[in-house]
Design a protein around this nucleic acid. Structure first.
Lengths: 229, 229
DNA sequence: CGTATGTTTGAGCGGGCTCAAACGCCGTGG
DNA sequence: CCACGGCGTTTGAGCCCGCTCAAACATACG
């Protein structure tokens, strides 16, 4: 690691996970120069659907949701973003998605034109971003069979496992749900009541333990995985 | 356009749509050098899930499906590829998807290592691929609300419009369906019977006209779009 | 003409949605 | 301290869409 690493990056919690990982001194310094830190509090939006897509970001801490408003008024969450994930879209003039914080979150925000220019000057950054984007694409496709065909029980189990995998989990598999029941329903394409019913069913079946509204502990991840299919 | 364009590329039907579009003489020549033409007949696979992902390709003509086998034995189509689309995945050692031709198809096939090396030497190609990949991601996310929440009627209508948009359509909105009823069901997460029922309902409602098993004509695309939501 | 494959049609069932109400958690103010 | 009200969650009852199972029908190909 070069010693001329910018101090803000050296102390960054997402260093080693995000776009900036693997970037050499010059490219990292350039990225640092065009970026600035921003903090979102829970519920706050990073960008609305229809807005000019003027900024992108790296997510440093917290969890964001990427959602989409349907013609019938319904909302569908099309992605959850965890620390290290890239936020926003390049090349698109207007964003089709609304991005909002589910918990307090820290971001490294970059003006989109500056970031695009940086990709030209530092091809390695472009390749990293390509790699991440392809991984995101694979991630989204992993959810498609779930949303299209799986029963509600399997969807809820899969989401619990996914949140446990990507969130900050204590040693005993205890963690705080970043999503309310309503948000889980939006992500899974289910009604709130259906999510709630299966959550309590999992609790009664001693697959999970609930503490408060957001605290969860996975008691039997193996069987949850079987249910998720 | 440079006059030293390789003859195969100059005559290519997908020229101007695919990865090679917008590429300068040197990069295009390099791409040409590592690629070879391959023809797939309908039903033939380009790669199976679990195979080492040794090759990528540009689709020149025809339609491919990208599908995924679920633990319960079900199949989900996670993407349809039309001429100009990029086929396969970079960076992944093994492919999780099975890719197969729905109709006779022509491809420009590249060995994956050679293509990755080319991206390093020709950053412009990498940026083009990044752009295409982000577009694909947006495309996939467009389908998520559909698969997760929409009723069967809306899914079928949306697929018909999508196939009409991307396929080769005659002046009177007549075209040949690249997908069988079973494949449509796999793409939409529905049972074959449900797809069939809604197709005949659309026909009786004079929204579409069917001729033979694969021939369709969109009589009222506007109302179809309303139904698709 | 016969067989295989794909498509259509029918009958019945069940999972998840809808509508509705009760319950619990928590911040606020009296 | 408790009362109050707002919001998120839970629970219940009934209904409808899409799945399942089954059989007839159409199409392609020998």
């Amino acid at each position: 690691m070069p010693s001329d690493l910018p101090p803000r990056c050296a102390a960054c919690a997402a260093r080693g996970m995000a776009l900036c990982d693997g970037l050499g001194g010059a490219a990292l310094a350039a990225l640092h120069d065009i970026g600035r830190r921003r903090r979102l509090s829970a519920g706050q939006a990073f960008g609305w659907s229809g807005d000019p897509a003027s900024h992108c970001a790296n997510l440093v801490s917290g969890v964001l949701k990427v959602s989409r408003l349907e013609a019938d008024g319904g909302v569908q969450i099309v992605g959850l973003l965890y620390p290290g994930d890239f936020v926003g879209a390049l090349f698109a003039e207007r964003s089709v998605d609304t991005i909002a914080a589910l918990s307090d979150a820290d971001l490294c925000v970059y003006p989109r034109p500056a970031l695009e220019a940086l990709l030209v000057r530092h091809p390695a950054a472009g390749r990293l971003l390509l790699r991440r984007t392809m991984a995101t694409l694979a991630e989204v496709r992993r959810w498609m069979p779930m949303l299209a065909r799986a029963r509600a029980e399997a969807r809820v189990a899969a989401l619990l496992l996914d949140m446990a995998r990507r969130g900050e989990v204590a040693g005993d598999a205890t963690f705080r749900l970043p999503l309310s029941r309503a948000a889980m329903a939006e992500a899974l394409g289910l009604a709130v009541e259906t999510v709630s019913r299966h959550m309590t069913a999992f609790q009664q079946g001693e697959l999970i333990a609930l503490s408060g509204l957001r605290g969860v502990r996975l008691l039997d991840p193996v069987r949850l995985a079987e249910i998720a299919g």
